[in-house]
Design a protein around this nucleic acid. Structure first.
Lengths: 263, 263
DNA sequence: CGAGCGCTTGAGCTGATTCAACAGACGTGG
DNA sequence: CCACGTCTGTTGAATCAGCTCAAGCGCTCG
């Protein structure tokens, strides 16, 4: 079972670039502790000193911060193979909260093990650097989304991103993927009230675009969703068949690559 | 004049942690090209392959992305000693725009030189990693601000952050610092219209908190501003005299450290 | 079986936008 | 040196997206 951590990490880092077979072996060999986290349980809180990298094996995590007035802003969800903490290795203090959205299984890899991995195989540092940069890119997109788009577009945008991310991790089956969020959580993600999330979800449903039920996201019309969302996936830096920088304009917009097998 | 790049980089990295004297010498010795960028000139565009790290020596830069519908979201300002591109070293494509807000002087350091620096002195990689993590922390704060706070608080928050960042770089004199932004730029930063920015600025002025004129930010009442902004500076990971994790609550809120000399 | 949580709906309110017009500063070219 | 266009800031009035408050409903879990 411990090998699962290495496999998951390999999947993650493979999204960042080509991994040579020696690097792959080294990554597979990494050791950590596997642990089950119950729903709503907090893994890391502000002020904690980070000592390990987390990697999601099963379930769903989320990261958030709370303002002094009590408003919660969620700034990321972690699905299997995501590795929160990989970006913040050198930080002396965590400044947000990492918690489990549903009962989850995670791997905890001590920083020392990661450092050793990097020392042995410096190419891996580049891959890790890239996943961190990708994270930054996603953060910027979230800022743009929550600042400039209105509720329906914003929500559509979030769904597009989540679906594609799930796809690249091989977590999509039959046009749907896990997304075990309540409407309140979704509200704290998009900067909306739960009430307005409810009405917006109904709108998207009536438009025949998506449905969110039973903790799962069902995509009925990705192209329509992407159009509403003004979604341009290039910020995800996907490797798998996305035309690399054929700028997606309203004219050549094309999500046919979605039908292909994920990497 | 070339030595200015090294000095600026040293100032920047010193904010991330203690720099031993050998590291400091190595940083000072770094070489790059000094160049003047005229107002509104673009330095990096989406799709460019990043080949150098930029470091601001004089002036002001800003980074933004444009949505498919034409909305612009600014997601960062760079004041002297800031180094955009330090975080995205390993990325194969830039995905936002870096441009000059006013006529500026920047250093361009080829990635090769930075890589050599890191190889020679691995401790510096940690410092760079930390500045990247700090950048992420600021991004999360911006997301929170633009998503959950209303105009006046949001703007106050931005002013608090900018002022403190300027302070730590030694760019504050007499309670004011450069901020050469138009109301439209400020709007694209906060996700507001220029019209509403105008009215909100008037409000903050009438409250006796700040004034923004002649491209400069004049702070009249930092505490009042911070209160309105729900500002908690710990996300900036400041080293200089900020009580490290004495959680700032409404009760013990105290910005007296502002009076001390910046590091 | 009761309590709590998540979802749904309605009505009224408000913060922010939109559209439009105008004034001052600036710079450029005739 | 003046005339002109452009850019930035300012103000007013109407509109709207999203919020607040409040109530009710069904499910699950203890």
């Amino acid at each position: 079972m411990t090998g699962a951590i290495g496999e998951a990490l390999l999947t993650r880092l493979s999204c960042a670039g080509t991994v040579c077979s020696e690097d792959a072996d080294a990554i597979r060999a990494i050791r950590g502790e596997v642990r089950t986290i119950r729903r709503h349980k907090v893994i890391l809180s502000p002020g904690d000193i980070p000592r390990f990298v987390v990697i999601v094996l099963k379930g769903f995590l989320y990261r958030y911060a709370i303002s002094t007035k009590g408003a919660r802003q969620i700034h990321g969800f972690c699905m299997p193979t995501d590795s929160p903490g990989l970006d913040a290795m050198h930080l002396d203090q965590v400044d947000d909260t990492l918690a489990a959205l549903v009962s989850s299984v995670v791997g905890l890899v001590p920083h020392a093990n990661v450092s050793r991995l990097i020392e042995d195989r410096p190419g891996i540092a580049v891959l890790i650097g890239r996943t961190a940069a990708l994270q930054g890119s996603i953060h910027r997109q979230w800022l743009m989304r929550n600042s400039t788009q209105q509720a329906s577009a914003s929500m559509a945008n979030f769904f597009c991103e989540t679906y594609l991310r799930a796809k690249t991790s091989g977590l999509v089956t039959n046009g749907s993927c896990d997304l075990p969020v309540t409407q309140e959580i979704l509200g704290d993600t998009l900067g909306l009230t739960a009430v307005h999330v409810n009405r917006t979800l109904q709108l998207l449903r009536r438009l025949g675009l998506v449905e969110l039920k039973l903790g799962r996201l069902f995509i009925h019309d990705f192209d329509g969703l992407a159009r509403l969302a003004e979604f341009d996936p290039h910020y995800l830096h996907l490797k798998c068949g996305v035309p690399n920088r054929a700028r997606i304009t309203p004219a050549n917009r094309d999500f046919s690559f979605l039908s292909g097998r994920a990497a």
